[in-house]
């Protein structure tokens, strides 16, 4: 997967390139809008990470030019989180919009979501090791023993199993399970995962839910 980063701030650009390379992407970095457009014309990328505030040709102009070329997904980075800016970005065809300072993990997760968009597994039954979740019958068993879950716990487990092996951030979990998009200062998600873990992993040797510190949670066999 090839990603083009267009970012003028040297430190930000460097750590983005380093971080995304380590995540297994092949990354090119452009320091100006003009360079970025030029590189996007030369080569086809799977995704573009674009800073809105660029000297010379700004992000709006860049996205315009890139859109002329073809349909590359674009993630906007902006230091301003005015609603009007956000709307403008999304209207111009940005696939996602992150406000600086953003967490790198969040960016990485969103990039992965965009690149994998449409291939999220939808199924009626999910399995991980001896854990089994039946969506239609709302039934969870581990090692053949049924586990009683509350509604939210079931939804949380469903999300984790649906995205098995993926790291989910707290924000993602809050938005998918509770439909809460606000950045809360609270550890609601941690508390919920803790309760779920007590039921799912507690009595068993093999722990399925793992905590990735300061990032989020993932479920894998």
């Amino acid at each position: 997967m090839a990603i083009l980063i267009i970012e003028d701030d040297p430190k930000t650009g460097d750590y983005l390139r380093k971080g995304l390379r380590e995540c297994g992407y092949s990354v090119d970095l452009a320091r100006t809008g003009t360079d970025g457009v030029h590189m996007a014309m030369q080569q086809s990328y799977d995704l573009v990470v674009l800073d809105v505030m660029l000297p010379g040709m700004d992000g709006w102009e860049v996205i315009h030019r890139i859109r002329e070329r073809g349909d590359m997904p674009v993630v906007f980075l902006s230091a301003r989180d005015d609603v009007s800016d956000r709307i403008r970005g999304l209207r111009l065809g940005a696939d996602d919009y992150l406000v600086k300072p953003f967490s790198f993990v969040e960016l990485e997760l969103r990039i992965r979501t965009i690149l994998r968009r449409g291939i999220v597994r939808e199924s009626d039954v999910f399995e991980a090791a001896d854990l089994r979740l039946d969506v239609l019958r709302r039934k969870v068993t581990r090692d053949g023993v049924e586990i009683a879950l509350t509604n939210k716990e079931f939804m949380l487990l469903h999300l984790l199993m649906k995205r098995q092996g993926e790291v989910l951030s707290r924000t993602q979990i809050a938005s998918e399970v509770w439909d809460m998009n606000f950045d809360s200062d609270t550890n609601v998600v941690d508390v919920a995962v803790k309760r779920l873990r007590a039921k799912i992993d507690g009595p068993f040797q093999q722990k399925l839910i793992s905590t990735i510190r300061s990032v989020g949670y993932s479920l894998s066999a």
């Binding site: 609603v83 939210k152 809460m180 609601v188 508390v191």
Partner: peptide, 27 residues
């Protein structure tokens, strides 16, 4: 800061918020 108002059903919305914080309260 601009406020974009919409009509909020108090019972539904508050229920949703309480749902979210339920685990925290149980602690």
């Amino acid at each position: 800061q601009q406020v974009e108002r919409s009509t909020i059903d108090l019972d539904r919305e508050l229920g949703k918020i309480l749902d979210y914080f339920e685990g925290l309260a149980l602690e």
